[in-house]
Amino acid sequence: MAGFDKVVTSYADAMAGLNDNMTIIAGGFGLCGIPEGLIAQIKTMGTSGLTIVSNNCGVDDFGLGILLEDKQVKKMVSSYVGENALFEQQLLNGELEVELTPQGTLAEKMRAGGAGIPAFYTATGYGTPVGEGKEVKEFNGRPYILEESITGDFAIVKAWKADRYGNCIYRHTAQNFNPMAATAGKITVVEAEEIVEPGELDPAHIHTPGIYVDRVILGTFEKRIERRVLAK
């Protein structure tokens, strides 16, 4: 690598430095917009005791779900889980911990984490189990709870197009949590469908500026569809 060129050519290089008990922030919503090859690399490495911050945990044999097979995940921070039997089993056995977090709060925790804001007040979850034990403060007569932001040792992100400098564009709703995840990792790794030369992407259309990105790798994607529903 030289200068701003962040492209790596092997998955081993892409995830180098990932160790047991680290926290990983992952982009994706369900199976949409997930960094498939980076997840597969974590499975290959066998890293364990991981805390994974991701809206969901994939399905039994795809997405983050494959990291459950060898019990690599200690804790999930997610808004909706349990699309997979293995997840349910490990949860009931006490082998896996889950911190259920409202979806908007989860997105904001990542955004704030990447933006240097350690905590924020939100009305979401006040008066519910989510608000239990959290500081409450009233603004304009309405109660809000204090939520702490999240950063990770690694962030894993899936982009449509990235240039060598790490500037990224996402495609359609595969954007989801990816832009916030990209900002919140000490080491942010982007797996892209296409890598282009700097200058090829319109600077005004960049979703994630390269400053947030440490490594870029070209991936190939299965892009599995979780619920294929057709027009009647």
Partner: peptide, 22 residues
């Protein structure tokens, strides 16, 4: 595969739609 809704079902976008982060 890159066009889904919050129920994770495949969908389309209408004319005048916008797409953004979570």
């Amino acid at each position: 595969a890159d066009m889904i809704n919050a129920g994770k079902e495949t969908v389309t976008a209408v004319t005048g739609a916008s797409i953004f982060s979570s």
